[in-house]
Write a protein that binds this DNA or RNA. Structure first.
Lengths: 220, 220
DNA sequence: AGAGACCATAAAGAAATCATAAAGATTTAT
DNA sequence: ATAAATCTTTATGATTTCTTTATGGTCTCT
C-alpha cells in the first residue's frame, strides 16, 4: 500500500508521513502540485493525500488530473471550509474531505477506511472467514496466516462450513457432503473430526469458530 | 436506492428526508434507535444515515447491530466532536462521519459518493413477525435485533407460529409438527416449551406474542 | 359464585447431546 | 512390508435439553 502525500507545508507533510508510516503503509512525500503529479505519473500509488492550497498548480486541478488517469482514492485535506468548494471536490471524485486543522488519528482512520474499500478487491479465490482462509486449489488452510495441516475430511468439513457462514449443517449433511457416501447413524465420527479441527484452529486463534447447535448440527 | 434515516430530532429528520428525496433516492424515516433497527431488519435498505445521540439504544450500538447483519454504508451524523469517538466509529464500520451542524449539500455529496462505491445489496430471507425474526438457515432468532438462543423444539415451535401468524395450532399439531413424532397425550410438555419461549422473548420485548386460545391451542 | 377444566411457571430428575481422549482399524506412503 | 498418517469406534465426563411433577392461577359453564 503506497500513499502519495501532496502538501507544501513541510511540517504537516512530515506529520502525515510519520502517521502513515507508523500505520504500516509506505509514504511518499511531495511538496507541490507539480511534484505530486510528476510522481503520480511515474510511480504506482494506491492512495493520495492531497492538500488544496498549493503553490503553482491548484489542488483542484491536481485532483482532476489524477482522476483522469486513475481511480485510486484521493483524500483531500484543506483549511477551506466553504461548502461550495467542498461539495465540488467530492463530486469531482475526491473520496473524502478532511478539514484542517485535523487530528492525525482521524486522518488515519479515514485512510484505513478507504484502503479497505478500494484496495482489497479480493482477487485471490480463497475462501475466507475472519481469521480462517482456505485455498481450494492448493488444499491449504491458514489461520491468521499460519498454515495448519488438515486431513482430507477435516478440510472438506471446514470448507463446507466456511462456504456458508452462519448456516447450520446437520451431521447428516456434513457427513454426506464431506464423505460423499451415505450416512448410517455414524454419530460420533463427525463430532470427532470437528473436535480435531477445533484443536488445530486453536493453535493460532483464541476464537472458537465452529459452534455446535444443539440437536441440529454445527455452524461457523 | 432506499435510505434509512435514524434521527430523533424531527426537524433534522425532515430536512434529511427532503434532501434525500429530492436527490432521487427513497427515504424512510425512523426516530429512535430501536425503530431504526426494527425497520432495518424488516425492510431492505441500501444505506443508513445514523444520528449518534439517540434516546434508548445508543447510536454506536445501532451501528454495530447493522454491521453485524449487512455491509451497506452507514453515514454517521453527530454533534460530538471528540476524536476518540469519531475514530472508534469509523473503525467500527461507519463509512463516514459528518459533524453537526452540517450543510445538506455536503451530506448529499457524501451520500452520492458512497452510493457510487457500494454495489452490495442487503438481502435477507428471514421469517418475520413484528419484533421477532427467524433465520431458518442459521437457526438464529432475534427479538428487536437481539439474538435469543432457542433449543431445537423451541425453535421449531416458534417457527411454526410465525410461519402462520394468527393461525391457532392445537397442541397435537404443534407437537407432531415440531417433534415429528406421534402425540400421545403429552399434555404439559408443549405448555412448558411455550412458556420457556415466552420467557426468552420477554427479555427483549414487552409484548406477549404467543397467546393461548382456551381449549384449542396457541397462536401468535 | 363455584366446580372443573385448562393454562403458566418453576423446579427437579431423566434423557439426549456434545467434547475429547485414547485405542484399535484402516488406509496411504515409502 | 513396514511405518506413518488417518479414520472410526469406544468410553467417559460435562453440558444442555426434555419431560415430568407439582402448585397456583385463570377461564368457562352452569
Amino acid at each position: 500500500m503506497r500513499i502519495l502525500i501532496i502538501e507544501d507545508n513541510e511540517e504537516i507533510n512530515d506529520i502525515l508521513k510519520e502517521a502513515v508510516t507508523d500505520a504500516g503503509y509506505e509514504a511518499v512525500q511531495s511538496f507541490s502540485g507539480s511534484e505530486g503529479l510528476l510522481r503520480f505519473s511515474t510511480e504506482d500509488f494506491d492512495m493520495v493525500l492531497l492538500d488544496l492550497m498549493l503553490p503553482g498548480i491548484k489542488g483542484e486541478e491536481v485532483l482532476q488530473k489524477i482522476k483522469e488517469k486513475s481511480d485510486i482514492p484521493v483524500l483531500v485535506l484543506s483549511a477551506k471550509t466553504d461548502i461550495e468548494g467542498k461539495v465540488n471536490l467530492l463530486r469531482q471524485g475526491a473520496s473524502d474531505y478532511i478539514t484542517k486543522p485535523f487530528d492525525v488519528r482521524e486522518v488515519l482512520a479515514r485512510i484505513d477506511l478507504h484502503a479497505k474499500n478500494s484496495g482489497t478487491k479480493n482477487v485471490s479465490n480463497d475462501l475466507i472467514y475472519n481469521e480462517i482462509s482456505i485455498n481450494e486449489e492448493s488444499h491449504v488452510c491458514s489461520v491468521n496466516g499460519n498454515e495448519i495441516s488438515l486431513t482430507k475430511h477435516e478440510f472438506n468439513l471446514l470448507r463446507l462450513l466456511v462456504l456458508h457462514p452462519e448456516k447450520v449443517y446437520s451431521k447428516r449433511e456434513l457427513f454426506e457432503l464431506a464423505w460423499e457416501e451415505e450416512y448410517i447413524g455414524e454419530d460420533n465420527t463427525v463430532n470427532v473430526h470437528i473436535s480435531n479441527i477445533r484443536k488445530k484452529i486453536r493453535e493460532y486463534s483464541d476464537n472458537e469458530y465452529i459452534k455446535a447447535v444443539w440437536g441440529i448440527g454445527f455452524r461457523i
